[in-house]
Design a protein around this nucleic acid. Structure first.
Lengths: 212, 212
DNA sequence: CAAGTTATGCGAGTGCAGCTCATGTTAATC
DNA sequence: GATTAACATGAGCTGCACTCGCATAACTTG
């Protein structure tokens, strides 16, 4: 995975600065959205001069991409924790678990509602966005990466038939779930419960074709 | 529906100009994508001064929104024609028909691969886009409008139980299908046939819960 | 048809955001 | 302490979306 950073922060202060910039980026995304977010504002809020901003981030996208990477790592480690904690009766429990964690982060993690894993969410009525499909990995679409890492996570737990068919099915499920959850959160700030339920139903019904 | 146009072209020349601008917009979208598209370039290619461009379109978004509206109208009238021509045995035939027409337009209609009904497609590796969720109707998400108009089209043909439940199901189906088809066309220029097949399966499996 | 009135056409210019780069400053090495 | 390398900085450059005041054309009226 190509790093989203131009230069890796070596000293303590630099590491803190990069973290602060990501935090401020997340807050600003919640406040004003991606389009209105300016690199100058992120830098100034983090107490970092604009020139230094560009020492670490190649451009505005790189900033958001770095945030997306942080979000995906946080999501996967939270899902892992949940899996360790709960005991899964059926593969459908895993689907519910992942969707529930995603919903939880949408509600609580700053900036997650806007960027999650890189698909920058458009502001209703706002101007258009581009190039957010390959935030996590410049060589592959976001959800391909997400699906792959979920597959690795799940492969030991459920006796899925390995192969292209299942990989494709997982990708389809991730894409579809992502789309429906976006609607759920556009309609309702905490995510329309009916839509979240439909999302789970959609994924279960579909994956039932590929899993026992 | 709020018009995407600032001023409705009255005279013949103006109508032609607006059409030309939309055509050039579509071509440029295919060539360089939304982000790189400049209003100056659209205007100059259409042989229209930039000031006149802004007489008709409120902004860059308005231009693309107008194209999205044109696309949706074209899509729906083509679907209507197909329905009139074919005879539908089962509601699943209607699903296939709509998806097939969508795929056909993705392949042939200029600009459709990028904007379809307003969800501007990101260029892989390109910069982000925002605010394309409400292109068709400023008050509602694109796919709500698409779902609604598809519902009107379908309601006479299949004995669907009218009500919020079915409306929501249709919206979920449209969102999910849209997302999966986007993947299909990102992977493969003409749309990965396996993905298109999976899309049909996804929608059928899900809607089977709500239809006989 | 001429004068007046409204609508439309026009492009140089403005503001602003992303991003750069020459110069100043600190740390590392000898 | 001197030399060199790495890092920090913000004024300024570039390029795009969009405006605004004047020019031109099209209607209306006496």
């Amino acid at each position: 995975m190509t790093s989203a950073l131009r230069r890796r922060p070596a000293q303590r202060r630099s590491v803190e600065r990069v973290e602060r910039m990501l935090d401020e980026c997340a807050r600003l995304l919640d406040e004003i959205g991606y389009e209105a977010l300016t690199t100058k504002e992120v830098a100034s809020r983090a107490g970092v001069p604009i020139g230094t901003f560009y020492q670490f981030f190649p451009d505005k996208q790189g900033l958001v991409r770095a945030l997306a990477v942080r979000n995906l790592d946080a999501f996967l480690s939270r899902v892992s924790e949940r899996i360790a904690g709960a005991h899964l009766e059926h593969w459908t429990d895993l689907v519910d678990l992942a969707i529930d964690e995603f919903v939880a982060m949408k509600r609580t993690t700053p900036g997650f509602a806007v960027v999650d894993f890189g698909e920058v969410l458009a502001r209703p009525g706002g101007p258009p966005l581009e190039g957010t499909r390959r935030m996590l990995d410049r060589a592959q679409d976001n959800n391909v990466v997400v699906a792959e890492r979920l597959r690795v996570l799940a492969v030991g737990l459920l006796d899925a038939p390995p192969g292209d068919g299942f990989d494709r099915a997982l990708l389809v499920a991730v894409e579809a779930a992502d789309a429906v959850l976006k609607v759920a959160f556009r309609t309702h700030p905490d995510g329309d419960p009916l839509m979240i339920a439909e999302c789970k139903l959609l994924v279960r019904r579909y994956l039932a074709e590929h899993l026992p």
